[in-house]
Design a binder for these strands. Structure first.
Lengths: 192, 192
DNA sequence: TTGATACTAAACAATGTGTTGATTTTTTGT
DNA sequence: ACAAAAAATCAACACATTGTTTAGTATCAA
């Protein structure tokens, strides 16, 4: 009963956050984050600078919130799916992810190119892990080695996605899902 | 004859650059680059701010020069080796690299954690590519797919190294060289 | 020693930062 | 429709950093 009352978000707040976020992303496409000032974000968004500070500590805080929203968004997007170790299911699921990335390619490009924040990176990796490496953790590998393999596969997948985004998301001979699954699953067999 | 005269670098310049660089790296270990001011670097180094501007445009320029020096350093470090597709040679070579990283773990940690700069990333990836993926390009794969695989393996390797650095460079059950080679080579076989 | 080069110190305008308090506008609940 | 609450605005503020200039000093290489 207590948490039932979800505070309705003020329309103004919604608008302010939306427009600040959008300005910021637009700027991020043109300039490195180090050159983007709070002032410039606010001017582009036509929002008072004082208002910015009411919502965010600084640019990086704004960036983090954008990241978090994306993570949540992806989780919602995938929530409907049930997981099986059936291979075609994995492919289907990964395809769904690439569909999502394609739809949100603009923001994904920006966010994946900034990997200074380890937390975001690891959350993305966690998603990949859950999708592609179920069988990995089940088998009785040496845990130490497993961690390294997971790092490799997860980071590699992100690199793959970045390349895909940078080159205009052209579908290669194999689908992205196929490539990822083949590379990860096959890589594992080296350690069985 | 023309280019023979290599200008001797002034000792003062050498000292200035060295101490600025060192201060910067020290600060990078403690604070995110966005919080590091030119002023703070200079104060720590006890160098006049005007002098900083004589050598670097800003913090990011300094960072780039540090990166470039590291790349050059690695190339020199590996220059003595000759390449074979003999497997044990590859292992030896990779071990050499991990030796280098271990010796320079402080700076490597800092530099590898900032991947906003694609150029540096790609130069590191190029080294990994040349070392581990000779046989890859030789085979008649579909070029489109090859590019993706290279991205995956190279980025994955960097992720692996980052993890290794973050966890104190403990030697896992398999050596790092073994893991990288197994994962990359094995991953390839999926596309033969 | 000498000429060249590099560093320092001080001052400068320009820009961005983060916070304040008073005021206006919009939303929400009744 | 109205009053209370919440949010955005505005102007002003002290402050820090930036990047550049100028003149003087110290160090270097030869």
């Amino acid at each position: 009963m207590e948490k039932q009352k979800k505070k309705k978000v003020d329309r103004r707040v919604q608008y302010t956050k939306m427009v600040l976020r959008q300005s910021f992303i637009d700027l991020l496409e043109k300039y490195p984050i180090s050159k983007i000032t709070i002032k410039s974000i606010c001017e582009k968004a036509d929002i008072n600078r004082t208002t910015f500070y009411a919502h965010y500590a600084d640019q990086y805080d704004l960036l983090n919130q954008i990241k978090q929203e994306l993570i949540d968004d992806v989780h919602v997007y995938l929530a409907n799916f049930t997981f099986h170790d059936n291979k075609s299911e994995s492919v289907q699921l990964l395809n769904k992810i690439f569909e999502y990335i394609k739809e949100n390619s603009k923001i994904c490009s920006v966010l994946l190119n900034d990997t200074t924040d380890a937390a975001f990176y690891e959350q993305i990796m966690a998603i990949v892990q859950n999708l592609c490496m179920e069988q990995l953790t089940k088998k009785a590998f040496n845990q130490n080695t497993v961690d390294y393999i997971i790092s490799f596969a997860a980071t590699g997948s992100i690199g793959l996605i970045r390349k895909w985004l940078d080159t205009g998301m052209k579908e290669p001979t194999y689908t992205m899902a196929e490539i990822i699954l083949k590379l990860t699953n096959q890589g594992l067999t080296a350690f069985v």
